[in-house]
Simulated scan of single mutants.
Amino acid sequence: MTSQPEIIPGKFLDLLERPLIAHLATVREDGAPQVNPMWFSWDGAFIRFTHTNFRRKYRNVTANPAVSLSIVDPANPYRYLEVRGVVERIDADPAGAFFMELAQRYGAPFGAEPPADAAARVIFVVRPTATSAH
């Protein structure tokens, strides 16, 4: 897939391509924000996150698919990218394959076994709609 230069500024693409932690914000049913650090991947068009279908964040995005995420450059904490977007779809991942892909990307210290909650795993597929960066 191709990148979306009109949405993601080229000089900040490295923050999506590197295995950095994104802080993913969703909106709770009561309107309050919820933010968690998350593993992710970027394919040039979509940002994907692994999650489960029984936690709060899943309920948040099924009720309101609007999300925002921020990534800070660990070498320069004043350099960051914020991406606003929408969860375009939620894909089932009952074998935990995407979780394992991310575990490898991030060099997770636990073995090559799928997570215990693999049967409940899903993938949030986020389409970026706007950014701000510094």
Rank of each mutant, 00 (worst) to 15 (best):
M1Y: 12
S3E: 03
S3G: 10
Q4H: 07
I7M: 08
K11W: 10
K11S: 13
F12C: 03
F12N: 07
D14G: 04
L16C: 04
R18T: 09
P19H: 09
P19C: 09
L20Y: 15
I21R: 03
L24M: 11
A25G: 13
A25T: 15
R28N: 14
E29A: 15
D30T: 10
A32M: 10
A32G: 05
A32D: 07
Q34Y: 08
Q34N: 10
P37H: 13
M38V: 14
M38K: 14
W39Q: 11
D43E: 08
G44Y: 09
A45D: 08
F46W: 13
I47S: 00
I47A: 02
I47T: 02
T50F: 02
H51Q: 08
T52L: 01
R55W: 05
R56E: 12
R56D: 09
K57D: 05
Y58V: 01
R59K: 10
A63S: 12
N64R: 12
A66N: 14
V67R: 00
V67L: 02
S68M: 02
S70T: 14
I71L: 10
I71W: 01
V72D: 01
P74K: 06
P74T: 09
A75P: 02
P77L: 12
P77D: 12
R79V: 10
R79L: 07
Y80D: 06
L81I: 14
L81S: 07
E82T: 15
V83A: 04
V83F: 01
R84S: 15
R84F: 11
R84K: 15
V86W: 01
V86M: 08
V87K: 01
E88W: 04
E88V: 06
R89T: 15
R89N: 10
I90Y: 00
A92N: 11
D93H: 12
D93K: 01
P94E: 08
P94C: 06
P94I: 05
A95Q: 13
A97Y: 05
F99R: 00
F99K: 00
F99C: 02
M100F: 06
A103S: 12
A103D: 01
Q104G: 08
Q104V: 13
Q104K: 14
R105G: 10
R105Q: 12
Y106T: 11
G107D: 09
G107Y: 07
A108P: 02
P109R: 10
F110Y: 15
E113C: 06
P114R: 09
A116N: 13
D117L: 06
A118R: 06
V122H: 00
F124R: 00
V125P: 01
V125H: 03
V126T: 12
V126S: 09
V126L: 13
R127H: 08
P128A: 10
T129Q: 14
T129K: 07
A130T: 14
S132D: 09
A133N: 12
A133M: 04
H134Q: 13
